[in-house]
Each structure stands twice: as structure tokens, then as C-alpha cells.
Design a protein around this nucleic acid. Sequence first.
RNA 1: GGAGAGGUAGCGAAGUGGUCAUAACGCGGCGGUCUUGAAAACCGUUUGAGGUCAAACUCACAAGGGUUCGAAUCCCUUCCUCUCCGCCA
Length: 427
Amino acid sequence: MLDIKFLRENPEAVKENIKKKFQDEKLKLVDEVIEIDKSFREAKNKGDTLRADRNRISKEIGAFMAKKLIDDAQKAKEKVKEINDELLSLEKKEEELAAELKKRMLVIPNIIGKDVPIGKDDSENVELEKFGEPVVPDYEIPYHVDIMESFDGIDLDSARKTSGNGFYYLKGDIARLHSAVLSYARDFMIDRGFTYYVPPFMIRSDVVTGVMSFAEMENMMYKIEGEDLYLIGTSEHSMIGKFINTIIPEDEVPQALTSYSPCFRKEVGAHGIEERGVYRIHQFEKQEMVVVCKPEESDIWYDRLWQNTVDFFRSLDIPVRTLECCSGDLADLKVKSLDVEAWSPRQQKYFEVGSCSNLGDAQARRLGIRIKGKDGNYFAHTLNNTVVAPPRMLIAFLENNLNEDGSVSIPEPLRMYMGGKSKIEKK
RNA sequence: GGAGAGGUAGCGAAGUGGUCAUAACGCGGCGGUCUUGAAAACCGUUUGAGGUCAAACUCACAAGGGUUCGAAUCCCUUCCUCUCCGCCA
């Protein structure tokens, strides 16, 4: 959500930004907002004056009554009644205008970063940098479910029976690997100075509507029947939610947090759960990072955040690349974002394993996350990024560490979480 | 799930229809005096949102309605927290 003052003073910049995002249908909203804002402030001003009169006269009535001046009190009462009649319709108008204003402000996109590439959709995202050599071995890399099955490590049939498509049982070494990756990710981030959190896995509806759009909510969130609770789609929901309507003392930022949680997603929409395997599923686990910082520091944190993910994957011998989201593919709330993609030697292409976003002050403005500065309060900047999300990550891990004999090598940093093993063997 | 108590500033808490919400009082925070430095003591200061060049002014006492000239205070609905009991990993 933009600052209405910024829009008032820079309508052309806001329009320019909308064009860059190829959302020309939203251009008219800018002029509408300016017009509604003007009427709203007029109505509010008039209302404020009337309310001031009412307050003043009501106080006078108190004084009249104390002195037993019944007639004067009666006259004053009539005057207030007139004011109230006038206010009745005016306040209704104020309310309506405020609602119209908010409705439009919520869909006007955030100003994108200066260096964000201009493009219509994800096909125009821009590769930034490759890390590690994308190797294609001369032996066959099977489909990830087949690799898992070769270790007797997955049972999708049972999962379909108990829970339906989009769920999984992991077992044995594969299940252990899954936990090992998360434990390693946790310690990896703690070593880099992040504070580790295990947050609530369910959140209330007012938090849900705060942290996401209505469309997103419909397509992602599972609701608990008979309760005002939703299963989180990512720990970002509970982690950012904890700051709603909070004023943070200046010496308590930056908040660099890393959180673990299971994530639940309906995955309604474009992709669905059409693919066999564990690439897109209703339930997965994720180690996440969330940062709340001063505005001038968010660029630095953005680079630090995605770098963490790259370093993490590289420490497990997985080649990755960074892909910057172009203007048209960027969610409305974001200033910029990039995907970290892992190399798939089977498909001989990169696929998404994490997403790093700088939301600027848009999320903070929407949720009321402020920092208490010496010269007044200001909105914080918020960022988030995936450390790692297995089991999707295991696809990359297994494909890249698979040996010709069917065993999978365990890179050194992970061994202490796998009972010291340097590789796992086929069953 | 049952019973009770409660929700007011960063925290504790007073306020039960108007001249204590410019939110008492206490703690904490910030600035200062004193001190070699610190502690203590003392003095001052300290909610947020909107509005304005700056003011004036408006709004917010869990949320939403109602009564009233006027509501933190009275009424209704909803939510939440705590304590005890029950159940439970």
C-alpha cells in the first residue's frame, strides 16, 4: 500500500509505475483516488468542525445544569441536536469515501525498485548469476520419486489413501534426510546471527487478511472448521503477523529472524497439483528468514538474504542461479524480488527453490509496523526469503548428489545430522 | 467444556454520566542537576492516528451497535486474556 501523501504529490510517478507493471487498467484509479481523497478531506474537515462545536456546547450544558439554568441548557440541547442531524449524513459520507479510498489504494501497486527489469510476465525474468557448474552426468538421473523409492523412502499410495493427492509419507533415510536438511538450515542461519523461532502454525482471520490479499487467501489458506483459525501457508504469516500494529524501539531493529514451520497450501489456480511427486504439494516444511529493518537498510538486507540461500545450497553441492523478477511478474506489494533456482540435471534446467522479497514499507504501512525514532515514528521495511523448503529441495539434492551406483552422497556439513554417514545406499 | 475475574499509555494501575483523558499515581524510558565515574536523590520530559506552514481542531479506553445534549463509565452483541476445575501430549 502506497503512502497517500506520496500519491497526492506524485501522481505521474505512480502512473508511470503502473505502466511499467503492464497494469494500464489501474491507471484511472490514480485520478479517482486524488478526487476521492479531496472530497474525503473536505467532508472530514467539515465533520471535525461540527464535532468540535458539539463537544463545546455539550460541555456548556454541563455548566448550565450545575448552575440550574434549565432554559439555557434546553436551548443548547436543541442546538446540539441540529448539529447531530447534520453530522448523521456527513459521517456516513466520510465513511463511504474512506472505504472507496482504501479499496483503490490497496490495489495500486508499490513503486518498484529502480533496477527492476521491465517485462510482462515470468518469461521476461532475468537471470542474474550462476553459482556452481550445472553438470549433466553421463549416467541417467531418474525422476525424483524413483530415486526416493530406490531407498524405500516414500509412500505416495498410502498418503493418497489417508489424505489425498498432494500429500506424502517420507520414510527411512529420505525422511531422515528431510529432517537433517531442516536442522542444518536452522543452525546455518543461527550461525549467521538470525534469531531462531518456532511460531504458531495457525493464525486468526484478521492476521490472514492483514498479510495477504483476498484472492491469495482463497487460493492458499486452509480454514479450521468452527474456529477463527487458518493453517499458515508459510511462517512469514505468523512472523510478520506478530508485528501488526507494533511500534518497535529503534535500538531493537534490525530484527533478523529465522523460523521453522510446516506450510499448508490449497494450491488452487494456475498450476494445481497436477504433477506426480513432491514438487507441488499441500503440505511441506520450510526454514524461512524474515527481516524488519530501517528503510535505509533494506537494500543491504535484500542482498544478504538471497546470498544466504545461495550459500546454503552451494554448501550442499547444488548448483543454483538467481533470477530477478521483472516488473510484470512482481507482486503488487513488492519493491523487488528474486527467485533462487536449483539445477536439475534430469530436466537440464533450473527450477525454483526459494524466493527473496523486499516489500519496502508497503507491508509495514498496511499492517502498522513502525519504528520509534528520535524525531517521530516511521514505517519499517520488511523482507522475507526462503532458506530451504523440503521436500521440494530434496529433488535438487537427490538429483545432484546421485552417484552412478545409485547411492547418494551426503555433503560434509550435513553428515552430523545423518549419523555421520557420508552416503546413503539403495535398498 | 464448567465456574469466576478482567481488557484504559511501554508496563502496573486509578477513574462508575460533564470541570482528573491536557489519562491521576507508581514503574520503566529520555534529558538535566549533583558525582572522578556510577548508584541514590532531585528537577524536567514521555500514547498513537488524522489535520495544519505552524496552530486550532478531530478521532482512539478490546471490537461493533444502542441510550444520551454529552459515554471509559449505562444497555446489547461479539472477541480476547487470566485464575481454578475437567480433559489431554
